[in-house]
Design a protein around this nucleic acid. Sequence first.
DNA 1: CATGAATGAGATTTCATTCAT
DNA 2: TATGAATGAAATCTCATTCAT
Lengths: 204, 204, 204, 204
Amino acid sequence: MARIAGSSGASTAAAIRRVGLRLIHRHGYEAMGLRQLAAEVGIRPGSLYNHIASKQDLLFRLIEAHLLALIAAAEAALEAAPADPPARLRAFVTHHVLYHLGKEAEVTVANFELRALDPPGRARIVALRRRYEALLITLLEAGRAEGRFVLTDPRVAAYAILAMLTGACTWYRPDGRLSPAELAAIHAGMVLRSCGLAPEEGAS
Amino acid sequence: MARIAGSSGASTAAAIRRVGLRLIHRHGYEAMGLRQLAAEVGIRPGSLYNHIASKQDLLFRLIEAHLLALIAAAEAALEAAPADPPARLRAFVTHHVLYHLGKEAEVTVANFELRALDPPGRARIVALRRRYEALLITLLEAGRAEGRFVLTDPRVAAYAILAMLTGACTWYRPDGRLSPAELAAIHAGMVLRSCGLAPEEGAS
Amino acid sequence: MARIAGSSGASTAAAIRRVGLRLIHRHGYEAMGLRQLAAEVGIRPGSLYNHIASKQDLLFRLIEAHLLALIAAAEAALEAAPADPPARLRAFVTHHVLYHLGKEAEVTVANFELRALDPPGRARIVALRRRYEALLITLLEAGRAEGRFVLTDPRVAAYAILAMLTGACTWYRPDGRLSPAELAAIHAGMVLRSCGLAPEEGAS
Amino acid sequence: MARIAGSSGASTAAAIRRVGLRLIHRHGYEAMGLRQLAAEVGIRPGSLYNHIASKQDLLFRLIEAHLLALIAAAEAALEAAPADPPARLRAFVTHHVLYHLGKEAEVTVANFELRALDPPGRARIVALRRRYEALLITLLEAGRAEGRFVLTDPRVAAYAILAMLTGACTWYRPDGRLSPAELAAIHAGMVLRSCGLAPEEGAS
DNA sequence: CATGAATGAGATTTCATTCAT
DNA sequence: TATGAATGAAATCTCATTCAT
């Protein structure tokens, strides 16, 4: 009652994650069918369950992996940055924009499909997101304490900045008229000015 | 959950739109079942089709109505504003923030569920969104032409500003520590500064 | 996306119960597929859910209906019987055997598929079964109190009698060499003797 | 639940039979999954097939082994009994009750899961059951031929007796108020009386 | 002897939608 | 306008089983 086709092994799991991310991004989690996912991976629907525990589990792991990588990249960028708050802010913005460009699928899924997670999974993801936001909030608070930033409310400012930056990757197209570096520079300028800095401040 | 309270006077069609908006916002378009919608409206699933053409049609009309109202409100706000570009920018930002607060459902649905629309419907909605964005882009371009704004790219700046502002309503809670007016003021300040203006410029 | 064939109406629900009982009896609850059930009823699988809440629900209702009818029949038989304990015991045995013959499906399902019920459903069915058993236990206790029955333990005796009688309908075939009346008489004789009575005692 | 304790010495095949019997008894043949069986044995599902030919095969062997042991025990009990029919009947009843108590799993599976066997397997098991029933039928016929038993129909009487006795093990609990010996005595008394004997007849 | 990955079939259940009444 | 019963399609997931390693 069972036949063997091309027992590819470990790469199947990676293909499921890769194709799954693309399909969730394109159609949304609820609208993506496991039949379609299986077909594009090249296996039968039931075989998916040799690699994932459930559709929910797949979504959770995709989002979790993205956030963990994002946090690690941010921490690395901040460690490499000087202690000067404007420079650190510019470093964070540059990291965020460059990291997100080309990761539209991961970013969209991580932001849009949170509600599709069941409560325990959502709680864990929300905690990770808080860790990431805290990096920026801490940075803004430090700059304000040193009198370098003009900020009414660091938390609100952080949310506003993140919304602005993340939004960029929803419309950015690699074949557009702006290079990633240009886009990062434009946004760094806007963010620094929005915090009351002259654009040349914090230049590396 | 079954019968909607206080809806005795409203027509069934209005109840379907009201409840439908809430359910799509809470669960997402794909995850909202028409059975659930019918149950919360107080009718049977089949009866929905006396009021809507299809589930798609319901979604389209909800988004379209929201965008039309948003555009009208923006145009009214700009007509009432002085000709001075900083003042007009402040007026736009204030309008946007105040209009969006308390309309979380409409905003979220209009932004998140675009992908659930079929191509013709999506095209019409995208066109409406372009009309709205054009209001801000035109404003920014005018200000730059007068030498009042520091802007590398008005279109990119407009997207960044809209992303920042719209993001506010995804985390704003009416019982939070900030009033709508305070929130609008904070964001107006950030936006004006990000365009190279001193915060007091454009004050009404 | 939907077509109408022969909207038969209320009789569909009855057909589902009738065919469902037969299939559960023949294959067992777990082995009966709803596809098969739907096919034999003449509808599509999904249409079953216009009439049943779930497969579990179908099983529960079948067993519950059987037990309620069985209890009512037993109570009627005892009400019609004289007050004399041997006569009442003979009446109960005759009722039980005659009622069960020809109801092999109901009896088998009610006895064999209890374990397939979820705990709440099982609890309600077990309570009904206790009500039925209590009718016999009460009868045996009354007869022993009057010194008419030789019984070590009325509860154990009741279980033994019921097991013996119910077993009859698992092998009884209407086209066999014994008529229902003969079968009832044989078992009544064995039961009465097993309680220490002469066979002619309790004869009506 | 995962690894079976105290099974280090037993072979994997024996563990499969032991755990399989327990799971079939608890959930039923159809409801028991081979994945669950493998997990409780401590191996992967595929490895089961190093020890069993199929799920059907496992069920068949469990039932066959039980019936062969039951027949052997009955024959031993009858060989050890005196030639007197009442004494032989008492010996058979005592054997049956005592053998069955504590073998609830085997008995339930052998009786309830017959329908899950494919036709060839079922035929072989039914033949074994006939052999066992024949021991009692022969005994009853002999007793009737000697004029010791009051019996309308030895075959019907045998079925009634076996149903009564076997039923006892479906409700017997080792921690109940009756000992196995007491239970056997009660049933021996009922059976002997049901065949028209005074209770003390056939006492050993 | 055990494993991991695959299979085809099928499980129960939900979906949006239709339409005679 | 509302209803109840139907539809075809599809949903996610489990099943027993196979077999190269």
